[in-house]
């Protein structure tokens, strides 16, 4: 088994699958990172993803236009993000509980609309892999990195863009200020509400896209409750990644790579020396280990704390 395991096919297979699997986590977690950096935890990511997944799949089924499907999922994500902003910024509701409400809302809405409008599911043809010219022809590297569908490329390209916005722009500075000390930002004329609205709404849009990525780029089908916890893991990845885009990406990659690894272990371990249950535990053991030893350097001081002018 061991010699087979270190074969080129297996190692490239693990790396390729890891990158592909990381895509929905990355979309959702990058969006959530912006929300959290502005001081709002949106636990409703899973619910928004579900509505995004349904919207994407339904529009793709009706129109066969994948970009329109993705756009509609993003719009639905924006609407749900606006709702979450209103709840957490204007109404100043307890973010954890309202997030759970948003999750239930998304779960129910996506199931209801699926039953009413589609009833049954039939596979669509999703985004196909695009081989990047020249780079895609490099042995091994080309196969691992440059032969994915467009959403995988977009997700990873968003990482440096997010880092630039957060660390190099005035808007990013405002986000960080609002997340750490909203009253100070407010006294300098930064609208805390506007910044939080923008970030949570952007997070909603990204969650909608993350959800749509499942039927449009990874699975080609829809099923009720198909996210199966990805949204919650994305929220955890933001903590895991220390609220930085690179950290979030590394967390998503680690989790996905270990998941790909455990599947290969099962395929290669013909005599079942390693029980499948043990292989399945690997991603979670790794996650706990990294969380336990990781540092919480960037945690926004005002995370989950509603801001009201004059109350401090």
């Amino acid at each position: 088994m061991l010699s087979e395991f270190f074969s080129l096919t297996v190692l490239t297979g693990i790396a390729y699958s890891g990158i592909r699997l990381a895509t929905p986590y990355l979309f959702a977690a990058l969006g959530e990172m912006f929300a959290q950096r502005s001081g709002v935890v949106n636990l409703g990511v899973e619910g928004i993803m579900l509505v995004g997944a349904f919207t994407g799949f339904a529009v793709a089924t009706w129109t066969s236009n994948l970009w329109l499907a993705l756009f509609c999922a993003a719009v639905v994500g924006i609407i749900m993000g606006l709702a979450m902003s209103y709840i957490s910024v204007n109404m100043q509701a307890e973010q954890g509980i309202s997030g759970i409400g948003m999750h239930l809302f998304g779960l129910g809405l996506s199931s209801l609309l699926f039953k009413k409008w589609l009833g049954s599911t039939k596979a669509i043809t999703g985004f196909q892999p695009i081989k990047i010219p020249i780079l895609g022809d490099i042995p091994i590297i080309g196969e691992i990195f440059f032969n994915h569908n467009i959403l995988v490329y977009i997700a990873f390209l968003l990482v440096p863009i997010a880092a630039w916005v957060l660390n190099k722009t005035t808007f990013g500075l405002k986000i960080r200020a609002v997340g750490v000390k909203p009253e100070a930002a407010d006294s300098l004329g930064v609208s805390v509400a506007r910044i939080r609205y923008s970030c949570v709404t952007f997070g909603g849009m990204m969650a909608g896209i993350a959800g749509a990525a499942l039927p449009l780029a990874l699975i080609n089908l829809f099923q009720e409750n198909m996210t199966s916890g990805i949204g919650f893991i994305a929220v955890a990845l933001v903590y895991f990644g220390g609220w930085s885009p690179t950290g979030v990406m590394l967390g998503a990659l680690l989790f996905s790579l270990v998941n790909a690894l455990q599947l290969w272990i099962q395929v290669l371990d013909k005599d079942k020396v390693i029980p499948s249950d043990f292989a399945l535990m690997l991603p979670y053991i790794m996650t706990i280990a990294v969380l336990a030893f990781g540092k919480r350097t960037n945690q926004p001081a005002a995370l989950t704390k509603p801001f009201e002018r004059g109350s401090h």
Binding site: I97, I100, G101, H103, L104, S111
Partner: peptide, 10 residues
């Protein structure tokens, strides 16, 4: 929020 979610789930 919670009741809207619960109602839709139901």
């Amino acid at each position: 929020t919670l009741s809207a979610g619960a109602a839709l789930t139901a």
